[in-house]
Deep mutational scan, measured.
Amino acid sequence: DIEITTNGEEDAKRVIKELQKRNLEYHIEVHGNQWVIKVR
């Protein structure tokens, strides 16, 4: 598993777009303004 910590929603959406392009499965956890994306 890979864990990507982003700085808020805009940053997270940019990362998610890339993950979707590669058809990767991911899970999002929001901790305040930090979005942690866990990639399987």
Rank of each mutant, 00 (worst) to 15 (best):
V15Y: 07
I37S: 00
V30F: 08
K17A: 14
I4V: 05
E10Y: 08
N33G: 11
H31Q: 11
I37F: 07
V15E: 02
D11A: 14
V15D: 00
A12K: 03
V15A: 04
V30W: 05
V15I: 15
G8T: 15
K21A: 12
I16T: 04
V30M: 09
W35C: 03
N23Y: 05
I28K: 01
E29A: 05
V36Q: 03
I4D: 01
D11N: 10
R22I: 07
I4M: 03
T5Y: 15
K13M: 15
W35K: 02
R14Q: 09
K17D: 10
Q20M: 10
R14Y: 09
V15F: 07
K13I: 13
K21Y: 08
L24I: 12
L19P: 00
R22H: 14
K17E: 13
E9F: 12
E25G: 08
H31G: 02
N23H: 11
A12M: 12
K21P: 01
R14T: 07
R22T: 06
E29L: 06
N23F: 07
E3Y: 15
E3Q: 11
I16E: 04
I2Q: 06
N23E: 08
A12I: 04
T6I: 15
W35L: 05
K21R: 13
W35I: 09
D1S: 12
H31S: 09
H31D: 06
V30L: 07
V39E: 00
L19Y: 02
E18D: 08
L24T: 04
I28G: 00
D1F: 15
H27I: 14
E10H: 07
I4E: 01
K21L: 14
Q34S: 10
D11P: 04
E25Q: 13
K38V: 14
K38M: 08
V36F: 05
Q20F: 04
Q20Y: 04
V36M: 04
R14N: 08
T5G: 03
E29P: 00
G8N: 15
I2F: 15
N7I: 12
G32E: 08
Q20R: 10
L24A: 06
N33M: 09
V30Y: 09
V15C: 08
L24G: 02
E25M: 12
V36E: 01
N23C: 05
K17L: 13
D1W: 15
E29V: 10
I16Q: 03
I28H: 01
W35N: 01
R40M: 13
W35Q: 02
K21Q: 10
N33H: 09
K13C: 05
D1R: 10
E10A: 12
D1L: 14
K38E: 02
E9K: 07
I16D: 00
G8E: 06
I2S: 05
Y26T: 02
V15G: 01
N7T: 11
